[in-house]
Design a binder for these strands. Sequence first.
DNA 1: ACCTGAACACCGTTCAAGT
DNA 2: ACCTGAACACCGTTCAAGT
Lengths: 240, 240
Amino acid sequence: MAEITDGGASRAGDGENVAPMEEGPRRLRADAERNRRRLLDAATEVFSERGLEVGVGEIAQRAGVGRGTLFRNFPSKEDLIAAIVVERFRESIARGAALLEADDPGEALFTLLDQALTRSETDRALFEALDDAWLCRKDIGAVHTEMLTMLDALVRRAQEAGAVRADIGAVDILVLVKGMCEATRSLRHLDGDFELRQLDLVRAAICAPGHQRPLRGRPPTMHEFELRRPPAGRSAAVSG
Amino acid sequence: MAEITDGGASRAGDGENVAPMEEGPRRLRADAERNRRRLLDAATEVFSERGLEVGVGEIAQRAGVGRGTLFRNFPSKEDLIAAIVVERFRESIARGAALLEADDPGEALFTLLDQALTRSETDRALFEALDDAWLCRKDIGAVHTEMLTMLDALVRRAQEAGAVRADIGAVDILVLVKGMCEATRSLRHLDGDFELRQLDLVRAAICAPGHQRPLRGRPPTMHEFELRRPPAGRSAAVSG
DNA sequence: ACCTGAACACCGTTCAAGT
DNA sequence: ACCTGAACACCGTTCAAGT
């Protein structure tokens, strides 16, 4: 039915070098393992290019397998998307954890937000999954909690350093950044500076009093907004 | 195919009391006019309740007409959505125009943003339409330009009054607010204060230096975030 | 002029038949 | 064990037949 349901966390995406006696996901046959990876790669590619509405048939074809194989590895299209989302979440958490070692705690946080914006095109499935309907899945809820834990540590360090306002929390920032990245991604006909301005606005919102900076670039005029519109934009599906 | 195409602006939604010799939309027969309105009302209702993925069959049924009648009035589901979006845009523009008369130019702007947040649930189709794929439609592009014109006037007044930073423009603000409203709407299990905090963050981002205020409420903890999650959330369709 | 529901095309999902 | 494509259900859209 293509609605977000609780898909359980069986075979939660790890995939690489599973220890022989590990719990959880049973070892896959070599060809199955390869097919699974091909499906994830093909789906990641088309999803970031054209969004979540691309058909499972095309994904299977691009991965060089039959449609049935896709549904053997992922009980539903939603589960396929969730597996990708979990992978992207893990990567993002790893980047954040690395930034916990950085010298300047304030810049460390802002660097993470910058990375989020930069990757918001390829990670679009990740951002779309940051809502009630997806978070109630056990697998996504789990990595999301890890994400918040990491972000919380980064925010506290930045607050102790006096770079970020004291009355804000990790959830506040995550939601603000999610919205900004998605709104910016869907207006890609505006030039690159526009994204940086939006990032600067988020920074202005969360920085400590007295740390104000000017926005990069200059405000797009209505005229620019009109002119740069794509000639025959087709991308967002209404349904299917 | 349910993709966003240029649907032209024929019969752009005005509907009420068309002057006899007006150009453009030919006068509809009385029953057809009533059916058209019923379809718009039924669609508005179910879209705001359950999102754009509700089926046309249900909409037609709710309006008390056959499916064919829906497609006679609106060549595609997308055109039906666009007609609703245009109506909501017009309402929003009217509210903004009224605020141009307000005494305090800064508060006038922030009041508009507050209204946007308050109405983001019922106007969700409007926010979803604020992207490349929808804006390239002539009918939506036109009202969007009107919207920016109104917002631009409101912003300039607020800037002259010193309430809003000088290096920001209407497009910057519209995009920031769109993202914030959508991100907040999809996390409705958090209590009402959370929305106000997000609005305060937007305000902090766009206000002039030295106008800082504390955020209302307090940051949601991760624990709260987990606990308040809906038991069996189903709302966002992956496709169809 | 307008209304209607059967029919069509498309896409997610299942499953009997294969290896 | 795993793979496959034909078959099914669902939804947006069309259209011949009605009034």
